[in-house]
Design a protein around this nucleic acid. Structure first.
Lengths: 152, 152
DNA sequence: TTTACTGCAAATATTTTGCAATATC
DNA sequence: GATATTGCAAAATATTTGCAGTAAA
């Protein structure tokens, strides 16, 4: 799906959600959605704030948090916490599901696609629990850090 | 393994680690380790701080964070972040590996043991990445919240 | 016209840091 | 005796909240 098509689709989904929840369709909300869908990979709030204000559309941090919560609720955005007390976000629609490899040394996060894992996790029936989404984080040492270590 | 045996074993492992890293073996550090291993399940820093000070051994928050970092480094404790900007910890030694079910409604975290998943994840060879440990978080609705919802 | 949403600033919550006193080695 | 560690308080970081003004419906 090309970028424009995705943009239109997620805007439409967001509109449906806002309508259903009787929330207002403000330009700030759509500007934030557009910016998120123009990026790839993970980002934190501060990065998003800078990007919004420098390049696109002036919004406050409060509005950013408010809108992000709406986007999480309607599953257009995913949130991750990799252990450093920072929240990371990524777009969810038309973004291939992936796991995350986190380097304990340098903190780099790589995406890791594995369909066996995905299928097995998704196939699980759990007693008294209805799964909606899941996150698998694998912590360890990335190739770069491993080779740096060896050379020392 | 009984509680006393576990306590002695983890104390010994901690001692080895502290010696190797040329860190001091202070009573605070062992008191924190003991308390952590006397509990089961997850806890946050504030809970641990209260428990230490009310029932056991007066330590500052700074010392708690400092010691926790050491315990994480030597893998006697695991850290989790379930998305609410709070860090949770649990003992790692002699604690059956498990995944986590997190209810989006009430925030309750349940442990979920599944050996198929465990084996598959552990069997994966990943290019240019050496896994050390991993966390699988499954978000959804717990039985309690599902039945409360229905009744409404 | 009503009131949800926005920006701003202050408040809250969690974790980290600086420093003088203390205790380990 | 040297210095790593402690407690305390202040600082840093991330997120939430209160409120008056603005704009969506």
């Amino acid at each position: 799906m090309d970028k424009d098509k995705i943009r239109d689709t997620v805007r439409q989904k967001f509109t449906e959600y806002l309508t259903a929840k009787k929330c207002r369709k403000t330009p700030e909300r759509y500007a934030i959605l557009d910016l998120i869908y123009s990026k790839s990979g993970h980002f934190d709030m501060d990065t998003l704030y800078e990007a919004m204000n420098n390049e696109h559309f002036r919004v406050s941090r409060g509005t950013l948090y408010n809108t992000m919560q709406l986007l999480l609720d309607c599953k257009l955005v995913l949130k991750h916490q990799f252990g450093n007390n920072l929240s990371y976000y990524e777009k969810a629609f038309n973004n291939d599901f992936h796991h995350h490899l986190i380097c304990n040394q340098c903190g780099t996060v790589q995406e890791y696609k594995d369909n066996d894992l995905k299928s097995l996790i998704q196939s699980k029936k759990i007693k008294r629990f209805t799964p909606v989404l899941y996150s698998l984080y694998i912590f360890g040492t990335c190739g770069k850090c491993a080779s740096t270590k060896k050379r020392k």
